[in-house]
């Protein structure tokens, strides 16, 4: 596999409103994040109708945010984000790969508290500590088992125990219900895995982004291609943050473009808004990821 891939990503969101919208405030997490393994070459967002007030900044989690407002009557809103991104293959440190999971689950007792890690160890509004999630994860986390092994196993178990079913859940479905019904989409599986890990005392963050459909002819394509995707990053001392995709049951590596991360979906919702005037809206999302 190549060491580095360059992607062109386009992500179009379109709202059709049932009645004209008079004012609209929107918040976008649509710019791929600069990281040690990912560089953003070009990025632009086209908004139609053109907003009056537009400002870019960083959120608490270090992601780029674009906020804009419209105060003219409009019946559709289109937001098109286009980026060119270079992604490096991430090599795991083999000597650290055998660190036990208990190390990841305990807070360092001395030294400065690493807030970048602790922020993701506690529960968050949509991802509570959950006894059921802990019990589900526990078999993979036997005493003294290497963290990486256990994580990969949990990732695969979620893939095989749960059915990918876009009709089963919504953006507000609770982890308890996903666990009970064994159905959902990438967001649900990510929340579930985060709940499993945090309930065992380990830090985990929600990663929003895209996955390339790299499947060779004849093979099953990865689930979540052609849409925005979500997966999980876990933290282990020595290894740092490692990303896992429970929807596809694998490590998230070269085929994944990272937009940003937070404690859960609501921290990095691609496009979130409040509109005044419309009664109902139809949402269409189109994502295209191609390697150059």
């Amino acid at each position: 596999m190549a060491e580095q891939v360059t992607y062109r990503v386009s992500h179009e969101t379109r709202y059709d409103y049932s009645r004209p919208v008079l004012t609209s405030h929107q918040l976008a997490h649509l710019a791929p994040r600069q990281t040690a393994w990912q560089r953003l070459r070009t990025h632009q967002v086209k908004i139609d109708p053109e907003p009056r007030d537009c400002s870019a900044g960083k959120d608490y989690f270090g992601n780029s945010v674009l906020s804009f407002a419209l105060d003219m009557s409009h019946e559709t809103l289109t937001v098109l984000a286009e980026s060119i991104v270079e992604v490096d293959s991430q090599v795991l440190n083999q000597t650290e790969a055998s660190v036990n999971w208990e190390v990841a689950a305990s807070r360092p007792l001395t030294g400065t508290t690493d807030l970048e890690v602790e922020l993701y160890r506690t529960c968050s509004p949509m991802v509570p500590f959950l006894e059921e999630a802990r019990l589900y994860a526990k078999p993979s986390f036997q005493p003294m088992r290497p963290w990486l092994d256990a994580m990969i196993e949990l990732t695969r178990r979620i893939r095989s125990d749960f059915v990918y079913d876009p009709k089963a859940t919504t953006v507000t479905t609770r982890v308890e219900d996903v666990l009970k019904n064994r159905r959902g989409v990438c967001q649900d599986f990510a929340h579930l895995m985060i709940s499993c890990l945090r309930s065992l005392g380990m830090p985990a963050r929600y990663v929003s982004g895209y996955v390339l459909n790299l499947a060779p002819a004849g093979a099953t394509p990865l689930v979540g291609a052609d849409a925005s995707h979500a997966w999980v990053a876990g933290h282990c001392p020595g290894l740092g943050w490692v990303a896992f995709d429970p929807t596809n049951g694998k490590l998230a590596n070269l085929e994944f473009v990272t937009l940003g991360w937070g404690r859960e979906f609501s921290d990095v919702t691609p496009l979130r808004g409040v509109v005044l005037g419309s009664a109902a809206q139809a949402l269409t999302v189109a994502v295209r990821v191609e390697s150059l």
């Binding site: 004012t23 967001q187 691609p270 496009l271 005044l276 999302v285």
Partner: peptide, 14 residues
């Protein structure tokens, strides 16, 4: 009154 009476709606695009 403008839209003083119409209530705000939250939207989420994934």
């Amino acid at each position: 009154f403008n839209h003083a009476h119409s209530s705000a709606q939250a939207t989420i695009g994934i």
